[in-house]
Design a protein around this nucleic acid. Structure first.
Lengths: 353, 353
DNA sequence: TGGCCATACGCAATCGGTTGCGCCGCGGGT
DNA sequence: ACCCGCGGCGCAACCGATTGCGTATGGCCA
């Protein structure tokens, strides 16, 4: 390939090493190594070394450094799926947070498969990440307990687990808020399209929802509960099963917006109008929720990502991690008879921009 | 940091090394190293070594191996944004493809910012990835040419660029298909909500659309073209601008489903009904498209990911990469007067499950 | 039975930094 | 004037594998 002079000082030719820097400056490697860690201006030697480094286009090799020091400057994030926008948003935020601080992120996705979870964590560990962000925790503690037993700093994000440091949304509160809202809108017989029960997030939402409904005197009928996955397909299937069984509910809470999207299709196919015949509430407040005019709970994914990253980096440096719970926010739209999409859409649609 | 005895929990004490394996088997490190690369059953020594490795729970250290060998067994993927589901789908597929083959993926996201692009590529390179998958190429060749000049195997995915190996969808064909469809549905005055012009994908879609419309005798009116980003917010804004200017179009092609979602909100706010007053076509066929009953073009993201990964791994092993273009598929739904959502939803909603 | 080749194995250098240790010189305290 | 402390620096070991080279060995064929 052609190699224009200004564009890449170090292509082709051997990449500059510490040894070369040492020769060029007449100092010893170790001196150079140490000088590079100082501020350029702190000291004549430091300045000399930094200047030489700049001239040669020296870039330290993190591999070699990690091998000796045991620190890699990288954290691992394991997600259940990055096609789940909520996880992707968390990842993006984590990425930007840590990269700004000179760290790096290695991701892995497990599809919530226990075998893959362990395998991917081991892979990350073999790459010697300094800490782990776990986004695919299951409520049965096996996986998470195992992670904890590895002796590597870790923080759970989005899905918590008893006795482990985590950054989560207050899912139970969110469930209660939805119950409040639906009942306030006059719905006394409502359904629940729950997510997988092994997700603490889904579980928490369901528990809060159920508990609050009971408190409000409109207890959830077990016959109106369907549980499944987090995708549109499972949401649609769940709503179809429900409709085949009962048609006397006037509202439903879906474990995620994707589930709500699927449910919407099923409602449409059954000739029921969203918001008029059946009120629907989703979860995550994705961009598309605005377009569907879907009431949804916004959980602060960006903030979760940032806080979790911050907490993990603290843990790596020895600060004990203490769990945090962030506040959800109900965004009311037309699917529960709220204001029309037009009124709210503008300030909402920018997520992920 | 101080370095008290306990601060290096399991790492220093426990992690089995090649040397330990050597001592335990009475063989030399180099012999052990080589025996591990053989099949366990191929040879008594190999079996002995493998057994010992299993007993000690030996896991090779990729850092050390890479340092010496120059190969990391990792590829880098740079995405413009993982909250874009299309990119996330590609990533997921790449991840599974290469992990199955003993490789690993390091991702980075750049938000399409030129500064970030170079920085992140350099970061990946400093981690010594064996090859690069570029998902955020821009049409002006600067960035991609620079990547090519680095001398590292690379493949562009989703967004191509002249003279560089890539795996893309036939975006121009897709644009033509949409034009055909809209005209067939009787729309002769249609609008275009284009994506960023520096994306070859967006550009190609627009070109194909425009060209085919002209061929069909219904040329695109420049006054009916809006361009912007790929998000719901920009889609909504674009449609609002358009509606403020003109109301005489009966159909529109959106550069992505997200843009279409935003456009839908704007239409609703203007009191126009999707499919009845204005026909809309999106791009990517995301899960939510089904629920919105949105006609969309499905581009084969999974296949793109797989093919690109395959091609890159080939390139790493010396097989020259030759660009491939995959076929798009139009999914007709209610937003262009197609069959109701109910008819098609079932087999479509499972994407990403 | 002798010679030759393929193979298995040991030895030691190597990848590119980091870090404990010891030396040296300089400045300050008494 | 003396001694101590401290900071900068060089030396060399080290992290955990891979790999070129030299030697011993076993199988095969003549």
């Amino acid at each position: 390939m052609t190699n224009p002079p200004g564009s890449d000082p170090l292509a082709g030719a051997g990449r500059p090493t510490l040894r070369m820097l040492a020769e060029r400056t007449g100092l010893h490697m170790s001196t150079v190594s140490r000088a590079l860690r100082r501020e350029p201006a702190s000291d004549p030697t430091a300045e000399l070394v930094h200047r030489a480094a700049a001239e040669l286009g020296y870039r330290p090799d993190p591999l070699a450094a990690s091998l000796r020091s045991g620190k890699t400057g990288a954290i691992g994030m394991v997600a259940h799926s990055l096609t789940d926008i909520a996880q992707a948003m968390i990842y993006e935020e984590v990425d930007h947070y840590v990269v700004e601080r000179g760290y790096d992120v290695l991701v892995a996705s497990t599809r919530d498969d226990p075998g893959a979870q362990r395998k991917r964590v081991e892979l990350l560990l073999s790459r010697r990440v300094d800490g782990l962000l776990i986004g695919d925790a299951h409520r049965d503690g096996d996986y998470v307990d195992w992670v904890a037993s590895l002796g590597v700093p870790y923080v759970l994000v989005m899905r918590g687990a008893e006795g482990h440091p985590s950054v989560t949304c207050d899912d139970e509160l969110a469930g209660r808020m939805v119950a409040d809202h639906l009942v306030e809108c006059g719905h006394t017989r409502v359904a629940l399209l729950a997510g997988p029960d092994w997700s603490a997030a889904s579980h928490g939402r369901a528990v809060g929802f159920r508990t609050r409904l009971a408190e409000l005197g409109a207890p959830l009928d077990d016959d109106l509960v369907e549980s499944g996955g987090l995708h549109a397909a499972t949401g649609r299937a769940a709503m179809e099963r429900l409709l085949a069984r009962r048609r006397d509910f006037t509202g439903a809470f879906c474990a995620s917006d994707f589930v709500a999207f699927g449910a919407t299709s099923a409602l449409a196919a059954a000739g029921l109008r969203l918001g008029d015949d059946v009120a629907l509430v989703g979860f995550n407040d994705l961009q598309a929720a605005t377009s569907l005019d879907l009431t949804s709970v916004r959980s602060p994914q960006e903030e979760m990502g940032r806080v979790a990253a911050e907490m993990l980096m603290g843990a790596i440096e020895g600060v004990p991690a203490v769990s945090r719970t962030l506040a959800p926010q109900l965004i009311v739209r037309g699917s529960t008879g709220g204001p029309a999409a037009s009124a709210l859409a503008a300030d909402v649609a920018g997520a992920g921009a």
